[in-house]
Design a protein around this nucleic acid. Structure first.
Lengths: 193, 193
DNA sequence: TGATGTCTTGACCGATTGGTTTAAACAAAC
DNA sequence: GTTTGTTTAAACCAATCGGTCAAGACATCA
């Protein structure tokens, strides 16, 4: 008796995600979302429940398909130091490639965190925490392999590396040039010596 | 024949600045501004020319009274390394003190830079550049005094230190705890060894 | 073919957006 | 006290905001 949806829900979330990603929550209007997704105003509310719910879905999708898959790709590499290098390289490359200068959806959301609900805050915090843990685990492994001196404090250095990724993402939206971004990456490496 | 304004223009800019500072440009409505400043809608347009002009005035005021005065206070110290330490301490203290979690007006604006006009971009870029130059000059002086090894690359390290200040400001809005922020500062110091 | 129940659509809601304009309030100069 | 030039306040503007809803479109099952 029912009737199948005429659109691919996943596809809609993906397009909505890109709107929120580039404009932020507050500046994305329902009209922006309907015209980007192609679905009607009412359908959007019927299928997702509203702007906030759709934002959360989009953020979760980003977290899963960008942050999470990026980290597990890096984690799969056998040499931590190489994976760190690849991490910074990739983040810089993404920053330079993106003509829209959208930055990172998680970082963008982090810098408007005071206006978001608990659920959104949780997603952002978890994402950044796992980034930090990726660095920390890598440092500990590298120390065990004598690639990083024991004088390096894994937890602290990991936080600093994550912070530098965040800074690249923010400054990459218009402040820093390519060479300046690379300078940050260069210095990040020095934290492990 | 004229008639004096009934309000202090400087005071109005200051209150408007705080609105933009905590909510960003797009999310600050004219109503927010009139109720925060106490002046009427029409007066605001008559005196300042509009929302964007008022934003720019506020950003300039922030740049002058917060960023610029902070830097010159630090620059007045005779020991660069002490001034760096004081810099990170102060930024962390400001972050923790601020119950509104407003962050830094310049950094907040930097992370929404793609939506701003050239004039705003210029203010932000200059502010962050001068922060970077403060670090670079300090490093060079410290190197001349043998407090920092010559193996440290002043321009690169300065960019990294500035990036870490930016990260503290962003992560301080809800992601990082006090101890995590201090960890970043601790690692920043290690960049000069 | 007809009943069922979900999905889509576009109109509609009141509130708010940034911005303009008109007319009254006003102090100073004559 | 009248004129003058500016500032003020509030009404007003069209456009848009997020969100709802009733009515029609549709595929499935009987």
């Amino acid at each position: 008796m029912p009737w199948e949806k005429s659109f691919d829900e996943n596809e809609i979330v993906d397009r909505a995600m890109r709107v929120f990603w580039s404009k932020g929550y507050a500046s994305s209007s329902i009209n922006d979302l309907t015209s980007a997704t192609g679905i009607n105003r009412g359908s959007l509310y019927n299928a997702f429940g509203g702007k906030l719910k759709l934002f959360t879905r989009g953020l979760l999708k980003y977290d899963l398909e960008h942050r999470r898959s990026f980290l597990s790709e890096l984690e799969a590499m056998n040499d931590p130091l190489t994976s760190f290098e690849r991490c910074f390289e990739a983040v810089i490359a993404q920053t330079l490639t993106d003509k829209e200068k959208k930055g990172c959806f998680l970082v963008n959301t982090a810098s408007e965190l005071p206006f978001h609900e608990e659920e959104v805050r949780t997603i952002v915090n978890r994402g950044l925490l796992e980034f930090e843990q990726f660095f920390q685990r890598g440092i500990e492994v590298a120390q065990a392999r004598k690639q990083v001196p024991l004088s390096v404090h894994p937890a602290n250095a990991a936080k600093a590396l994550m912070a530098m990724i965040v800074a690249i993402r923010v400054l990459g939206r218009g402040v820093f040039s390519e060479t300046a971004l690379h300078a940050i990456a260069t210095e990040a490496k020095r934290l492990l010596k």
